[in-house]
């Protein structure tokens, strides 16, 4: 399967999905006005990738800022991953990075962890 890549731009995060290593990363900012349209190809790739069972997936979120609309999209991503873990023998690790003084981003990670049955590593960076 081919890798998936979107270059970061203003209001768009960098998205870097490596099909071979199972390392999927989203980083930067996400406040597109039409997040549903923007994330559609991301979901298409993910659904294709998760159609094969038994994968070991590391998902890295390293966001500086995202809007409430993106927050819905991320929850949908976690739901996909959770379903994969529970029903398709997947192994999922979520690395949620936050800048060490950014309490909002830390809390956001904690809330996603509470909302899903996935294991979250909450990782500060300086």
């Amino acid at each position: 399967m081919e890798n998936f890549y979107i270059k970061a731009a203003n209001f768009i995060p960098e998205i870097n999905f490596n099909a071979d290593s199972g390392e999927l990363s989203i980083s930067g900012e996400s406040y597109h006005e039409y997040t549903q349209e923007f994330y559609q190809p991301v979901f298409e790739w993910l659904r294709g990738y998760l159609a094969t069972p038994n994968r070991v997936v590391t998902f890295n979120f390293r966001m500086y800022y995202y809007n409430t609309s993106s927050s819905r999209r991320f929850l949908e991503i976690f739901d996909l991953l959770e379903d994969y873990q529970n029903n398709h023998s997947g192994t999922i690790v979520i690395n949620w990075y936050y800048k060490e003084n950014d309490l909002d981003m830390l809390e956001s990670g904690e809330e996603y962890a509470e909302d899903t049955g996935l294991k979250f590593n909450l990782l500060p960076y300086s």
């Binding site: 006005e33 809007n67 409430t68 800048k99 950014d102 909002d104």
Partner: peptide, 21 residues
């Protein structure tokens, strides 16, 4: 204060997108 700057920006984005939509 980067943390406050980010909060400030987040608030601007949500208010602006309310207007936009």
């Amino acid at each position: 204060n980067e943390f406050v700057a980010r909060r400030l920006f987040g608030v601007v984005v949500e208010l602006a997108q309310n207007i936009y939509h």
